[in-house]
Design a protein around this nucleic acid. Structure first.
Lengths: 231, 231
DNA sequence: CGAAGCGTTGACGCGGATCAAAGGCAGTGG
DNA sequence: CCACTGCCTTTGATCCGCGTCAACGCTTCG
C-alpha cells in the first residue's frame, strides 16, 4: 500500500468540462474500479437536496460534474458548509447509521450513487477498492484539518485569500477564476457573512491582489500576494 | 465490511487508568491486530513535541495513555489545535510525504509508534487491518466535521458547552470533569482566547450549568442545559 | 519568602455581524 | 424595445462579541 497513491492518481477522473464545473481539490479523487458499474447516475439542479442530516445513510456518492456542498443548519438558521465536493470526490460515506450532515447541489450537478450494502460487500473482498476509499478519506481529512485552522484562527482577508488560491487550482480560465458557487455558499463555508465576503473581496481589489470583473468572475493580479496571506 | 465496526469495537482498548488520561472520543479507536507487535512504545512529558509540521512522515502513532494534540502555528504565533487524541486513537497517518500538522503531548503520555513502511506493507495484504485504518479515518472525519461547524458558526458559550459535553463521556469522576489539559490548549482548540474561555466558564457557572471546583475540576449541575446549548 | 506560571477578572478596542438601502442583472410581460 | 419585478451583490452605518491589555490572586517550587 502506498499512501501517496491518492495524490499520484489525482487526475484520473478529471473531465474536460466547462471550467466552472471543475472540482475543489482534485487530489483525493477515488478510482473505484469494480464499484463503478454498480452506480446509478443522477442529476440535481442547484440547491436541490441530495440527502438530509439524520436520514438513513444507505447510499454513498461520487461527483461526476458540478459541485456538491455538505452542510449543517443549526436551530436558529445559522449554516456551516463543511466541504465542497467537485468531480471525482466521494461523499456520504458514513460510519454510523445516519448521515451526519446534509448534502445539496451547490451548482447544477451530476453524481453517481452507490448502495452502501454493495459498497461494503465489495470493499470486504477488494483490497484495491478499500485502499482507494481509505486514501480518499485521508485526503478528505487533510483538507478538513486545514479548513479547521482557517475557521479557528484566520481573519476574513486570509480566509478569502485561501479560498481564492484553492480556486486557482481548479476553476481558472486564463487569469480569471469563474466562481460556480454563490456568495452565500462562500460565506457559509468560510464562517463569515455575505456582506463580509463582499467587503473583503473589495478590499483585496483595493490591495491590488484581484480585480472583480463581475460577481462570478475574479481576475487575478497578484497571486503571490494572495499566497502570502495564506501562511 | 461493516462501517459500524468502528463504533461497535469502540471500547476495545479502553484502559482503566486514572480518569484524566481517558480519551476524547472513544469511538474510532483502532484494533490494529498484527500491526501491534511491530510498534515501539515511547513516553512524552507534557508539551514535548512528537513530530513537527513538514517533518518526514515516516511514522504513525497510537495513543496508549494520556492526550496528544495535533496543531499548527501560523507565522505570527496564532495556534490552532485541530484535534485531541486519547488512548486508542491513531494519529500521524499521512497521505503525503510530510506531516501536515505538528503533534505534541497535551498531558504526560505514552504512545506506540509504527514505521510507515511496515504499516503500508501490512495493510497491503491484511484487509482487516486496512479496514480498521479506514474506519478510524472515517471516525476522525466525523469529528472534524462537527468541529468545523463549531469553529465556523458557534458562539463562545456554545463552544464551551460542546467541549464540556464531550468531556463528560471520557473524563468523569462522579459528577465532576477532571480536565487533563490547560486553558491555553482548550482555547486554541475552540478558536478562542484563554480569557474568553475563563470568562465563559464563569458565565456557565452564573447560569447554574456548572460549578468550578478548581481550575482543573468542573462540577456538573445541569447537563441537560449544557446539551441544549449544543444543538 | 520571593519568583514564576496559571487562571480570573476588569476596562477598552476592533473585526466582523447586523441592519438598511441602493445598485446591477436576468427573466417576464407589455 | 422597454418597463417591471425579484434576486444577488455591494456599500454604508451602527452594534456587539470576543480580543487585547493590564492587574491581581492562587499555587507551586526553589
Amino acid at each position: 500500500m502506498n499512501l501517496n497513491a491518492c495524490v499520484a492518481s489525482a487526475a484520473t477522473i478529471q473531465s474536460a468540462d466547462a471550467p466552472e464545473t471543475r472540482p475543489f481539490g482534485i487530489a483525493g479523487n477515488a478510482d473505484i474500479g469494480n464499484l463503478r458499474a454498480t452506480g446509478r447516475e443522477r442529476h440535481f439542479v442547484r440547491d436541490r437536496q441530495i440527502y438530509g442530516e439524520g436520514d438513513d445513510a444507505d447510499c454513498a456518492f461520487q461527483v461526476v460534474a458540478g459541485i456538491v456542498r455538505t452542510y449543517k443548519y443549526l436551530r436558529d438558521g445559522r449554516r456551516q458548509i463543511c466541504n465542497f465536493h467537485g468531480p471525482g470526490k466521494l461523499f456520504g460515506l458514513e460510519i454510523g447509521q445516519a448521515y451526519g450532515l446534509s448534502a445539496a447541489a451547490a451548482s447544477d450537478c451530476t453524481v453517481t450513487s452507490y448502495r452502501r450494502r454493495t459498497l461494503e460487500r465489495l470493499a470486504a473482498i477488494d483490497i484495491q477498492l478499500l485502499h482507494q476509499l481509505f486514501s480518499s478519506a485521508l485526503c478528505g481529512m487533510a483538507r478538513m484539518k486545514q479548513h479547521s485552522i482557517t475557521l479557528g484562527r484566520r481573519t476574513a482577508v486570509e480566509r478569502l485569500a485561501i479560498f481564492l488560491v484553492d480556486c486557482t487550482e481548479y476553476s481558472m480560465v486564463g487569469n480569471d477564476i469563474l466562481l460556480a458557487i454563490s456568495r452565500r455558499d462562500i460565506a457559509d463555508h468560510l464562517g463569515l457573512t455575505i456582506e463580509t465576503v463582499s467587503r473583503t473581496l473589495s478590499e483585496l481589489e483595493d490591495r491590488a491582489c484581484i480585480e472583480l470583473s463581475g460577481p462570478r468572475c475574479v481576475h487575478l493580479i497578484d497571486i503571490a500576494g494572495l499566497r502570502d496571506l495564506c501562511e
